[in-house]
Write a protein that binds this DNA or RNA. Structure first.
Lengths: 221, 221
DNA sequence: AATATTATCTTGACTTCTCAAGATAAAAAA
DNA sequence: TTTTTTATCTTGAGAAGTCAAGATAATATT
């Protein structure tokens, strides 16, 4: 069994790999986990010995099939736990990330299976992130684009960055939740602000570009 | 914050202290935690530095007020978690001890409070063990005695040793559960076997002395 | 009291993860 | 190409928890 630390490294590498933007360098992993590059170097050597990553010093880092499988299981545990904490235990979606960050390393398979069952085998967590199944397969996330890149019309909110709890709090207080539909009223690209309509209560909300870039949506005809 | 290891030492010492039978020696703690006596010596020195135990080398070990407070909080977490796993998640009472053993060190106060609330602030866990409240106070456990020491008549089963999952499985399969009443039909002290009646299904069950000593009951008139 | 047994303690060593600091290689600038 | 900057690697050291083995103290036995 991998230690919590090893699981966190695998998860970090997986996330960097999924993030087209970022390259997987020792430095990027170090920044992600807030440890020093030297610490990462040592750990890469270790993970390489364990056949969890393909590591060519000074050149590249990549998960092996084995490493990716384990990383996906950690992600699965994390998201299933978050979903459970929100749906079953009624915790606020802004506060479950931290909890899941520690629980993901300790819940037993039995307990996890029970959560999954109680939740009806969900495919997305409360933030809209897909939950890998037991074989590490994601449901097709559809074609998402950042709200910041949508110019006009209606859209369905599908996914938000779960790591910023202030953003999550703000979204919730304005009824901006995954699964629901909204409409762009106006957009000022110079000022970097867009205004959207919340049909439910007919309120208008202003969103800046930075926040809008962290909200993934799908256009609706 | 105390580490998991430290919490386990405090819990072990508390349990030995509550167990009239056992003396709190370095050796007994070592046996309880399955580590070597030398390891315990080192840890006692450490806990003493932290003012969690009063430790006189080669003489005595006792929890300080601070140590006892922390130990009771660990016990509280453990039992609340067990109760949650059984009541809310529907896990088998025989399997929750292991789960709780690890979760007790990582659940946040927030999550614990939510469990407590969902359960309606229970005072006993599924095995009948009392759950300390937030101030570390137990509900009065009443006057319990081991079933092995009851000679005849009716009794209410109140509490069972939660550390032996085989015993728990057996109890459950025979409908012997905390809170319910049963009656002693006969008793053979030479053979060390007693026979009891389960009113619910009128079945008769034979119990040996060893198992009966781990079941705490209260006589019913 | 002398000896044997048992309990406890101390020391040295190992594991896992971490950082600091200096060494080295690669990339960018001159 | 030479120099500077940046990224990465290596080494040494520390914290936490553990065991093995030898030292010491306390208790039992004779």
């Amino acid at each position: 069994m991998a230690t919590s630390t090893v699981e966190n490294y695998l998860k970090a590498i997986l996330h960097l790999a999924e993030d087209e933007a970022a390259t997987i360098s020792v430095g990027s992993i170090a920044k992600n986990l807030t440890v020093t590059p030297g610490t990462v170097s040592a750990m890469m050597k270790h993970l390489s010995d364990e056949k969890l990553v393909d590591y060519v010093p000074r050149r590249s880092v990549a998960l092996t099939a084995k490493g990716k499988r384990q990383a996906l299981q950690v992600v699965r545990r994390h998201r299933l736990i978050e979903t459970f904490l929100v749906q079953v235990m009624g915790l606020d979606w802004a506060e479950v990330h931290e909890e899941a960050e520690v629980l993901e390393h300790v819940v037993s398979g039995r307990l996890l299976a029970r959560m999954d069952e109680m939740l009806g085998y969900p495919r997305y967590d409360p933030h809209g992130d897909p939950i890998p199944n037991e074989n590490g397969e994601y449901a097709d996330p559809g074609d998402l684009q950042p709200l910041a890149e949508v110019t006009s019309g209606r859209f369905r909110l599908l996914r938000v960055d779960d790591s910023d709890s202030d953003l999550l709090d703000w979204l919730q207080s304005h009824q901006l939740l995954p699964g629901r539909e909204y409409e762009i009223i106006s957009r000022d690209s110079i000022a970097g602000v867009m205004e959207i309509l919340v049909p439910k209560n007919r309120s208008h909300i202003q969103i800046g570009e930075k926040a809008a870039s962290r909200i993934l949506v799908e256009p609706v005809l």
